[in-house]
């Protein structure tokens, strides 16, 4: 078994109203960052786990996202990074 560090990004489902993202967009505009088109606020989870290989680690984290970490009704997730710890 190898120890992996897996980063998962969880973001509001595309197309759903994201009031936090909107508030941050407005604040950036107020600061003069006029080029900002959109911001989405989500969560980053960094998970350390033991797995046989990268594929197994990825599959396990995917299952975690589906069962707990992301709400299947309102959120999307993407496994952003996998590294051996």
């Amino acid at each position: 078994m190898t120890r992996f560090t897996v980063s998962v990004k969880i973001v509001p489902r595309h197309g759903l109203l994201d009031p936090q993202g909107k508030a941050v967009t407005d604040a950036l505009h107020a600061l003069g960052f006029a080029s900002v088109r959109d911001v989405h606020v989500g969560r980053l989870l960094v998970i350390e786990l033991e797995a046989a290989d990268t594929e197994a680690a990825q599959a396990k984290v995917r299952e975690m996202c589906e069962r707990l970490l992301a709400n299947p009704v309102t959120e999307d997730f993407v496994i952003a990074e996998i590294a051996t710890a």
Partner: peptide, 17 residues
């Protein structure tokens, strides 16, 4: 109840935060 799948849908952050 929504998270448990007993009811459809979900509750998100209020639109005005």
């Amino acid at each position: 109840a929504c998270e448990a799948g007993l009811l459809p849908g979900g509750l998100l952050r209020n639109d005005h935060l």
